[in-house]
Design a protein around this nucleic acid. Structure first.
Lengths: 340, 340
DNA sequence: CTGAAAGCGCTTACAG
DNA sequence: CTGAAAGCGCTTACAG
């Protein structure tokens, strides 16, 4: 599988120059005369010269590789973020290595270490659900820039990029209030999750601002915010005395479970009970009625994550940056809350 | 961001050994005494030594990186294959670089080249739709092992991994015949696509084997096999004189478009018209009625692709392998063809 | 404007 | 069983 390699040395020999000069010419060093530079570049091109990335990386202590860790790559929203990451990284001349933690904290730590060892220039991570044990992550910060996106944790002192969960949830609830709903349930995560808490506080705030009583009975926490749990919790909410007239599920999958259950009991959506999700997953337009939800601009999040990361990689200062960046998500109103 | 690096040299100094010995010990070279090996490994561990991957890659002309190119990373099925690739690669000690071609042939070529230049040990590619121009891809074959998966092309002499499209389509059609359908339409791709053609020939074969007349009028070819085209073609199929009593769409998204249109016209599924898709996308259980479809074992395809690729990478012979590997996909029967 | 030389951290044929 | 030495291909401080 070996090929006769074209190296700087070879080019230098042909042109009767030194490898130093050839190297400099190829890198547009100002010291080299235009004529030489041109000559070198031409030959390099015609010989199809490609620099040996390893020699280069070895020399410069730079890999131009970004490591990305996500809990689950099969989630649509995740793929849109990954797409943004790939695009932006390509533009900036970086390659992207991806790993999936499968929501396993141990695996996540292992992957962070492998990536470090592999010489990535920086890491972009979306954390597993129960990343309580920050101890495994903190050491990374001293070695390589780390930026968290989507599933973040304010316990880790680094730049974090999310969507404006609180505000978006607030808007979603306000929309429900505007269409006349007065008893709005929420299905959120039990485990501490930055995202879930933010959405919950948006919920609380909106209710308070509109003087709507907060009722613990319709604040539902689940371990695993899935379609199945959505179904289960909808069943539960239907069984309580004072039924809600709207359900806000903090993920689309749970919201879809809710809709499926409501339909099973022939409850009119949105007249009897309106439903709102979060994510604008591709399912949200397949389910009937189509789901009102918050569109999360995944690509934008991905692109921004790369931008901030490269900024840190290429920065000369060693100061730990600790920005909180919020990308705006928009409420998309569909039939599950408002029929035309 | 620099850290005091632990190198072979440092370990050697501390232990009063040569770097050669340390290197050998760490690599379990049989020449080195057990005692020394143990001593070296212990110190390496306690110093948290990690080999410099670039020095290693540089030395060995090996990156242990696999390049992966897919047309669209947001497709659920693609992500399942990617998951398989990531898993298998991790097991084998390879890292994975991913690129998205966005179904753009030019971008695809560019990416193949960047990957080559980047020193990947091998490439796994799922081709863009209209990869007619093989000329850009052939040169790769001389430089680095290439394996095609899912979207393959028999014009390129390399190992190819797909699911058993023809057989699976055959089974799908046979199922429709078994439930009493006699006039089965197909919605396939107009552009030459290996996958589409295979599924089409499975369709033809099944009809022939069951002595069912083949009618060009219900063989529909579209440019872009999407949900919208599914809707459009369902409309068309409803407009023709002798309506079909079943529709086989070669992708789930088109099948879902078909269902949505049939429902709009209050056509009973499956009694009046049954619908079958292909992929077992996550949408297929969200749509109502739930879609009968072919489950494509994406992870298995991904894992196999990696296995064959690594085999070629690590093989010493230069022979171009040209295997066609088919992974079996199973028909999943749901409400769109058969109600219990 | 150009070149000689050192060195990045590792592996490995060669020697003992 | 261990070591000295060369070399992978590149960049860069130093010298001229």
């Amino acid at each position: 599988m070996k090929k006769e390699l074209v190296t700087l040395k070879k080019i230098a020999q042909i042109l009767d120059l030194s490898t130093s000069t050839v190297s400099r010419a190829l890198n547009d060093h100002p010291d080299i005369s235009e004529a030489t530079t041109k000559k070198v570049k031409q030959l390099a091109q015609s010989l199809n010269y490609v620099p040996n990335i390893f020699a280069k990386g070895f020399r410069k202590h730079r890999s131009n590789i970004i490591g990305v860790i996500v809990p689950n790559i099969t989630h649509y929203f995740t793929t849109t973020m990954v797409r943004g990451i790939l695009e932006e990284a390509a533009i900036k001349g970086y390659r992207v290595i991806i790993s999936e933690s499968n929501n396993d904290v141990l695996k996540q730590t292992e992957m962070l270490n492998t990536m470090m060892q592999f010489g990535v220039d920086g890491i972009l991570a979306s954390l597993t659900k129960m990343t309580r044990d920050i101890d495994n992550i903190l050491p990374i910060l001293n070695k390589v820039p780390l930026i968290l996106f989507d599933k973040v944790s304010n316990k880790i002192p680094c730049t974090q990029i999310t969507i404006n969960d609180e505000e978006a949830a607030y808007n979603a609830i306000e929309h429900l209030i505007n269409i006349g709903k007065k008893r709005i349930a929420i299905i959120k995560e039990r485990e501490f999750s930055y995202t879930s808490e933010k959405r919950f506080s948006g919920y609380l705030k909106a209710l308070k601002d509109h003087d709507i009583e907060i009722d613990e009975k319709i604040i539902i926490s689940v371990d695993d915010i899935s379609l199945i749990q959505g179904k289960r919790m909808a069943n539960h909410l239907l069984s309580i005395k004072k039924r809600p007239d709207a359900i806000f599920a903090i993920t689309d999958s749970a919201a879809i479970g809710v809709i499926q259950t409501l339909k099973k009991f022939n409850i009119n959506i949105p007249e009897d009970i309106a439903v709102v999700g979060f994510s604008n997953s591709s399912h949200s337009t397949i389910i009937e009625p189509k789901l009102t939800t918050v569109d999360q601009p995944g690509e934008k999040i991905g692109k921004n994550a790369v931008k901030y990361l490269i900024e840190e990689i290429e920065s000369t200062t060693d100061i730990l940056t600790n920005k909180m960046i919020e990308i705006k998500g928009n409420l998309i109103i569909r039939d599950s809350t408002f029929k035309v």
